[in-house]
Design a protein around this nucleic acid. Structure first.
Lengths: 141, 141
DNA sequence: ACCACGTCATTCATATCTGCACCATACAGG
DNA sequence: CCTGTATGGTGCAGATATGAATGACGTGGT
């Protein structure tokens, strides 16, 4: 057994999580979506209103400059539109288009499908323990 | 409870991934290393010899064009050197420099440290089950 | 020896992401 | 009201990643 790379828990943890991410990414790809794009759309759907880019960036756990570029791409695909904030002239809000809403709905279907497929490999007890352990490990909600 | 984003297992899985990755990435950063760079160095250390970029790319689970650029950066930092393969003139091998070996050793220390810190939050039984569940989920070795 | 085909590394276009610098705007304290 | 400071969005450089196209080289069949 090699002690430099192969068998470290760190390596396996990252490897497994990357694999999972690729599964979702790959399933979304035929829809012309990435996890980043889907995440932005999903947060807008969840919010139920247009959000300032700053807020959207916070909810997507990324920096503002990243959201600027992501919204650039989403806007180029007509999935969202930028609108000035009437209450703060510095602020720009991203609003879903109907196409954006539709694309999110499609994306959600494939996300759910991959999720079901992945978790079907584990008993529900195992799955619960996995999520709980990850929550502890990552300090999540 | 929201059903669009917040509570899906997919979302939590990906969130945990990002968090864990950032932990390692952040710990490596003061050394001037990223996970990508460290991974390449680690694979070279593990191999014990200079590797063709193709092989290195395979072991790092990325495409060749990515490895070309990664080795560019590693070479610019004098952590590896490119050398022609005497047996195949198409092939270029990446070899560790002594500085590369030293940097890997430093990186390994912080990786181990973060790993210990993360897994200290779980009992060893829980940790084992986590790794096993992830292995099942990701279909890994 | 030659050709077709595969493989190697590289380059380029593009996507995603970060951090820094910049400018316009908001806002609090004098 | 003015000024200093904080904040919002953007632009830009750079890291990391993929995929397509390219040119150089190996190889097997003829």
């Amino acid at each position: 057994m090699n002690d430099v790379v192969s068998v470290s828990n760190a390596y396996r943890l990252i490897w497994a999580l990357k694999h999972v991410e690729e599964r979702f990414e790959g399933a979304l790809e035929p829809l012309g979506l990435s996890l980043a794009k889907f995440g932005a759309l999903a947060n807008l759907v969840e919010a139920g209103e247009a959000l300032p880019l700053r807020t959207l960036a916070d909810r997507c756990a990324c920096v503002r400059s990243n959201m600027t570029q992501l919204v650039d791409r989403l806007e180029a695909e007509k999935l969202v539109v930028r609108a000035d904030d009437p209450h703060d002239r510095r602020s720009v809000r991203a609003a879903l288009t109907s196409e954006g809403r539709a694309r999110h709905a499609e994306g959600l279907k494939v996300i759910r499908s991959v999720e079901r497929e992945l978790f079907s490999k584990l008993s529900s007890k195992r799955a619960e323990e996995l999520m709980e352990s990850l929550r502890v490990l990552a300090g999540g909600p």
